[in-house]
Design a protein around this nucleic acid. Sequence first.
RNA 1: GCGGGGGUGCCCGAGCUGGUCAAAGGGGACAGGCUUAGGACCUGUUGACAUAGGUCUACCAGGGUUCGAAUCCCUGCUCCCGCACCA
Length: 948
Amino acid sequence: MNRAIEKKWQEKWVNSGLFDTDPNSMEKLFITVAFPYPSGAMHIGHGRTYTVPDVYGRFKRMQGYNVLFPMAWHVTGSPVIGIAKRIQERDKWTLDLYEKVHKVSKADIDKLSNPEYIVEYFSGQYHDVMVSMGYSIDWRREFKTTDETYKKFIEWQIRKLKSMSLVNKGKHPVKYCPKCNNPVGDHDLLDGESASINELTLIKFEIDGKFLTPATFRPETIYGVSNLWLNPDVKYNLVNSGAESWIISEKSYNNLSNQIKDLKIIEEVDPKALIGKFVKNPVTGENHPVLPASFVDPEFGTGVVFSVPAHAPADYIALQDLKNNSKLLNEYNLNDLVDNIKILNVITLKNYGEIPAKEIIEKNNVKNQNDPNLEEATNQLYKIEHSKGIINLDIPVYGGEKVAIARDKIKLEMIDESNAEIMYDFSQHPVICRCGANVVVKIMDDQWFLKYSDEDWKVKARECLADENIIPSEVRTNLSYYIGWLEDWACSRRSGLGTKLPWDKQWLIEPLSDSTIYMAYYTIVKYFKDLNIGDLNDEFFDFVFLGKNSESLDIKPSLLSKIRDEFNYWYPLDWRLSGKDLVGNHLTFHMFHHSAIFKKNQWPKGMVVFGMGLLEGRKMSSSKGNVVLLSDAIEEYGADVVRLFLTSSAEPWQDFDWREKEVKGIKRRLKWFFEFSDKIKNIKGSSINLNDIKEIKLEKEIDHWLISQLNLRLKDATAALEVFQTRKALQDSLFLLKKDIDHYLFRVENREDESVIYVLSTLFKTWIKILTPFAPHSCEELWQNHGGEGFISNEKWPQYDLKLIDEKIAKSEEIIENLIKDILQIKKIIKKDVNKIHIYPSQDWKWSVYEIASEIAKPDIGQIISRSIKEDVTSDKKELSQFAKKIAKEMTKTNYVGKIDEIAILTNEKEFISKQINSKIIIHENDSFDPENKSKQSIPYKPAIYIE
RNA sequence: GCGGGGGUGCCCGAGCUGGUCAAAGGGGACAGGCUUAGGACCUGUUGACAUAGGUCUACCAGGGUUCGAAUCCCUGCUCCCGCACCA
């Protein structure tokens, strides 16, 4: 097989429009794969994703389905904007990546500074590579998500959802880069990728008409406050929030000002001047002193902390540190204040006393407030108090309640009375944008959201999931989890490529939100070239997809109904294939949107989720340069080899590992298959013609055996393919079947009779059809070279014949193989000269006992003996009992398929056996010659052996 | 933390609705055949022991259920993946 032959067939397929699919009277099958975002070259990891549906589609086409397999390009979004910018800035790393990994020519690389060109360039390349992989795609339906017609479709979708109140304006905290002026995702970060956004309660403690505003995870501890902490070594500012004045750290302003409207800096405040003064607790009304502590982080929260020494290890130890620091105490004149501090218990915890913080500090051996163990101690206590703690009975109103419940109530009460506000901060610092700036938490308040939090919508999405086939099945739990977990999803963006929000044009529709129901668009896109863009209004889509009124549409009614009929023909989508990284978003959104927009009978019917690709055992990654481009792989090995490797080395949902040695193994295997017909030719003396196979009545067991194996392999492969088990299908139909053929050829060596030719030709004719979905180019070529008419891609998938799958024949073959093995083994052990070998097949009565044993189906020796006696299988009871013991053990190791005429098969294969063991053999029908009394040892399927 | 999935022979991996499992298949290694040689191809070996087809030890560790466990149950250890405004 060479590339020229593959190209020849690819051209023939395209020119004949073989895979262009329109509605017809056959049963339809509609499969899609997540369309690619073409921001780089296609590598073998991508290759697997598209090869699996192609194999499945080709298989189903051969089974007589009308299969639609379309492809499009998801080009909306922002990554290419960043890439283009970096190219423009001549960023060395990016240029290298695109020249060396994505192999963009020097001539083209500069043009990549235009984001539109990037997607244009790579989608063109994707298209070409997909063609050269031989994918059976209906290219008439190819589109980009920036096409004007697609935008019309997206506008319709988003308006539809808005009309159902599933799109709302809302508030949401996001990671935000003030320098880029944009929300940022984790992949946009240089540092702090794993930081999450946490909610804090900012509580106002009055001081001289102003407020100190510590922020806390644990608002319930407001009842246990002993003092406030300020860090005397950091800068603080007085800021105005509405009518109030707050004192917060200078560094926290950056974050907080993105959350609280019109937060204005008034002046700097000296923390040292506040130390020793008193603040008023807004809930208890008590006064607490302000004290100095070095552990207070100016970047976290507001840079102000309230101290709950009973429950916060840091507070407790800071208090101890202060007590031991006479210099500090004297500097601020705090001796009396500190002596008067009372430690108050708020939370009761089983197995802990009044001051759990103290206990946990001792347990973790924390020495001072700068000890690294402090964090661990804090985490331990926070967790246990949240899950197991009860509010102290002395606390008014909330006493006796669980902490987890009281916390929210106390927070809400304080907010209600304007004593507190919500703020957000990261779980860790720093969080740094790719541009180098510090990222903050910003509350976006003019954002548009898809209301995935809506309970009714979740119910529908779950219903959609319940009716779907999910492969592999464990993903169902995942999907269900995500449906529950999804909150409102911000569906508008400031930058990137995409469709504008029709009612608020300053926003673009977020690129995951525009790729949820696009499968519907495939079904009708080919008509758009005949329509005006103005025709594609909401009424048009309402009619085509939902069957609503079409009176005012200015489109020929016959065309209009043809479009609607086509949609109705293809929908619902039968299978959606996608990488497992998309489970939590694309695939879940897909169910949400379908269930909201379409009628129930048009909801998707199945999903297949893929694993990832490894390269020589390491994770594949373009950015790390650890990839093999699909185009290079095709050049080096040929498309069929690549297809076979990608589908045979792992099941679709497992990770596959591209190992060059193993790819070469596949190449050898394909070559063997491709040259198989030459072997037949050599035996026959002339080429096979598939239309002219001379049928022969088979007489030899081994001929039946191969036909039986063929049918068995075909049966197993067909069943496997039905559920996307490409690996198992190939294991059966390529690897194991090849082994069967090897074995057969070995057994029939030197036989050149017509049965061999018939058996091999019949097998060949079926075999090339089974492998057509996997290696279509090779199979087309073989088909054509051996008299096949038209495309083999159009041939019917072969039918297996259950009657030809014969367990007894398989068993007979096994008997012969095992006998040879056993004799060789014995010869090896006894190490003496061998004259003749005597073989004693099992006596009839032993078969009867085995039959009885297999009916009992348990190694129950007593029962086997008693039933054998009852049925009078033999008169020699002593031998019977010995044999029963043996058979009881043996039967757990073999599969009983019924009585086999061992004498006949051994006699037939006498010559072969004799040749294999290199000794003369004698088959005895009785024990008239049995000097060592070996014949007693025979067991059904295991004749006795005596070596002379 | 929450959710999901794993740990099998030199390596990758199948098996895991309990007995046909010393455990498929591939890769690697070794031996033999073929070949001018190499490659390719074919056959065999690749846990240990064994002068009769056997025995022992094995599927992360420990315990249990069973006539019987890689497969079922419990406990522990350990590895991988996802957790959002991003394709």
